[in-house]
Simulated scan of single mutants.
Amino acid sequence: MNLLTNFHFRFFLFSTLIAGLILVFSNFLPQTIHTSIWSIFGFVAGLSYLVSALALWLYKKSPENFLQIKLLGMVIRILSSLGFIAILVVMGVENIILFIVNFFILFLFYLTFDIYTFISNLRPISK
């Protein structure tokens, strides 16, 4: 199996790139990064990995239900993210606006990665 086509390797590479961007921004523009960025990063990366791995596993079990599997992944991701934000806001996180902006940016990065893997899987599905 080619290493670059392996989902786990690509996800690890993407997460390393995002962590590097966080480090660069926290060193050069610290006012743009929330103090709990690593908990946000860990949650979003972990959730995205689990949802994508679950979708991949379900797709291998039942390829004809691909659309339902992707919709289930989106629902799980959105509900979990809203729950995470609500819990941290209720716990009294400082600078809520910066927290939500950082969360939303990381969420969009991982959503873009998920859409990219979805588009790259469309060719094998159409055959």
Rank of each mutant, 00 (worst) to 15 (best):
M1R: 12
M1V: 11
L3F: 12
L4S: 13
T5R: 12
H8K: 14
F12G: 04
L13G: 01
F14P: 03
F14D: 04
S15I: 01
S15P: 03
S15F: 07
T16E: 00
T16W: 04
I18Q: 07
I18R: 01
L21K: 00
I22E: 09
I22S: 09
I22K: 12
I22A: 05
F25I: 11
F25R: 12
F25L: 15
S26G: 00
S26Y: 02
S26K: 10
F28P: 01
L29H: 02
Q31P: 00
T32D: 06
T32I: 10
H34I: 08
T35P: 00
S36M: 08
S36N: 12
S36E: 07
I37M: 15
I40M: 14
L47G: 08
L47E: 07
Y49N: 00
L50Y: 02
V51P: 03
L54A: 11
L54R: 05
L54C: 04
A55H: 02
L56Q: 12
L58A: 10
K60N: 14
K61G: 03
K61Q: 09
S62G: 02
S62C: 08
S62V: 05
P63E: 10
P63T: 12
P63C: 03
E64C: 02
E64Q: 15
E64W: 01
N65Y: 03
L67Y: 09
L67G: 13
L67I: 15
K70Y: 08
K70T: 09
K70H: 04
L72W: 08
G73I: 14
G73C: 11
M74G: 14
M74R: 01
V75Q: 04
R77V: 00
L79F: 14
L79C: 11
S80Y: 08
S80P: 02
L82H: 00
I85R: 02
I85T: 01
I85M: 09
A86I: 00
V90W: 03
M91F: 13
V93F: 00
I96H: 05
I96S: 08
I96M: 10
L98W: 05
L98N: 15
F99H: 08
F99A: 06
I100P: 03
N102G: 06
F103T: 07
F103K: 06
I105D: 00
I105L: 05
L106W: 03
L108A: 12
L108G: 06
F109I: 12
Y110L: 09
Y110E: 07
Y110A: 06
L111D: 11
L111C: 06
T112A: 15
T112S: 15
D114I: 04
I115G: 01
I115N: 06
F118E: 05
S120R: 14
R123Q: 13
P124I: 03
P124H: 01
I125Y: 14
I125F: 14
S126Y: 09
K127A: 13
